[in-house]
Design a protein around this nucleic acid. Structure first.
Lengths: 205, 205, 205, 205
DNA sequence: CATGAATGAGCATTCATTCAT
DNA sequence: CATGAATGAATGCTCATTCAT
């Protein structure tokens, strides 16, 4: 019908549709963050909105699908940051620092939004966050490119990417536990550690 | 969902309390490994034994509690290995290598026991494995001791422990994906990486 | 459940009220035939048209009402056939034969149109088909008239009508199971059986 | 456990188990009779007992399964009656009369138990009742045996069985509408009609 | 203690129906 | 009138947990 332009103002219907979809996504993001993907139920998600239960299914077919949508959304928002860091960088170190600052900044932002402290009683469970998933390929690509261009030593890129992911994940989580989270410091630690290991990691304090 | 199947029951055993408790723990470990902590239900666990459903509650109050018990058990089995590595070590590097070899060997063993490939379709979820939890304090202690004794540089021990955990977790998982898993090589990578970073990590091949 | 599928929508048509009404009726007839009255949902019906769900309620208040409309429609199409048979007939036997041929021909036609073999797994359920309902009164009337005019013996017309209905229904269904359905033969059987019972029923083959 | 004998009194557990199962069956029979198989929900059935919803699934896996159990039960109770009629009979006519009296008596009994008048508003739906299913084979067998032994003319046994089923069903239903239902009269009508058709059917009144 | 049936809350999902556009 | 999103009741089913035996 209104395929003509994206400029014409949305009718009320279209507006609430977009708003509802967004409301579900926001609620889902929060719920996943708070209870974990597996523990979360579709009902938990809609309970986080003011929509009726059936309405969920007008927008998504299942919990999996919302997760996918969140992942896509996060990826769409995060990947440009990563790419920008890559383009800005004139050295591997700069690239790394840019990537980690982007990632730590990103999760700090999201943490502020979703924020509520997870129920810590239950066994801690980490699902690959959407941005994590989004970032993995980027990281591997970046590393392999760096290795290929001689910017990084020729080591097992798979293990290396895994190690970086692990560091990003765990140090990122640790960073969020501190308040206020110091993004730059965390990135400095990670980069120093990755590049030089213990020997080169910035001294504390 | 809970159509785990192919779990052969464990034989009536002696029916002593300790045997029942053990049966539940073994079944739970397998079930958690196969379906993931969240997806697993108490029913799935008892279905993996030849006990009645009510009996479960004579031993544990909930799924969480079994998980805790497994963690304790793993810790009880794993910590000595770690301590041994610590005592054997004459340098920080040796200590690290011993610790990683112990950990990678441990998860390789457990992987063999529980082994069946988890349903890989759902969003990947990693819970802190019991041994991971068990190991965290040990690692931090070890690191802080090393730092205190001047064996390691004075850097943020919390971030460092987190980074090590992250590396252990991710590289460990990556190692299990390869067959056969090469424990020594994985440990070599991890230790080299931690000590010297990219510069010092062992070259591939 | 309602994964009816393979129902090709009917083309937007002219969008006159009568066309919409007809589209719903046609879709409903097909859906009822394919999934059975109870299993069919209003949604299944509108999915079989290119109308919006709300539009259904501009024409019918409920599934029951469509069913009634179909019955009326079938009756409107079938009754003339019956009446014609009645008028053509010069004897009760001719009347009966005409009626059964009309009925068997009618269901053979409809069967061809809606045709797809219903899901045969579930307990077999027969609802009074619309035409069956339509025909009941006609049959009773016809029989009572025949009796009154001395063309048929004075027996319990209610039971007799029921018996005829039952025969028509069951033999009709059996006929449709054979391919190709032999309308004349089925009618011959029914009429012979009704008139003379076993003794007079036409010999097989 | 107590596989030893059927004589030893059932423990309380066994007794309530049997009682519950029976309660579900009774409720299901009534519900199916009142709302029809398709329209009935598992919840309708358990609502007809004083059991909790989950309890249903300790006894049956689905509505289909209860239906099957009812069918088996009805068959188990009805078939002997049919067989007795067959054995008592010294002629085909006697056989038929015995069979119809058994059937009409059976449905009259059940009707008394389940009795409540079906919601007549909805389109009338007849599922093959369990006894109907049970009876079909018996009837066909009986007819084919009769034909083989020369007791009945050699006509299309399939159509014939269908016709008898149809008559039994419809005349049976009609009989139940009258009060009190006259089993013998209905059977007399059916048998006379089947054997001699209209000519031989007993005159009314 | 072991047992396993009973319980009822909870979940995913579908549905008939309404009503703002 | 047509539309199709919103609604919330209802359904089949599973689950953790209790408790009489």
């Amino acid at each position: 019908m209104s395929e003509t332009a994206e400029i014409e103002p949305l009718g009320k219907r279209e507006r609430t549709k977009v708003a509802n979809r967004q409301a579900i996504l926001v609620a889902a993001r929060r719920v996943f963050a708070q209870m974990g993907y597996e523990a979360a139920s579709v009902r938990d998600i809609i309970r986080g909105t003011d929509l009726a239960s059936g309405t969920f299914y007008n927008y998504f077919r299942s919990k999996e699908e919302v997760f996918g949508a969140i992942a896509d959304d996060s990826a769409a928002r995060f990947k440009p940051l990563l790419r920008a860091a890559r383009e800005r960088a004139t050295s591997f170190e700069e690239y790394l620092r840019g990537a980690f600052e982007a990632y730590f900044g990103f999760i700090a932002d999201e943490n502020e939004l979703e924020g509520r402290p997870i129920d810590e009683r239950r066994p801690h469970v980490r699902s690959d966050t959407p941005e994590m998933i989004a970032v993995y390929d980027e990281v591997r690509d970046g590393l392999e490119a760096a290795i290929a261009r001689g910017m990084a030593p020729r080591i097992d890129a798979d293990y290396l990417a895994c190690a970086c992911i692990g560091i990003a994940q765990e140090v990122g989580t640790a960073m969020l536990r501190r308040s206020p989270p110091d993004i730059k410091a965390a990135a400095r630690f990670a980069v120093g550690f990755i590049l030089k290991g213990l020997d080169g990691a910035p001294r504390k304090g």
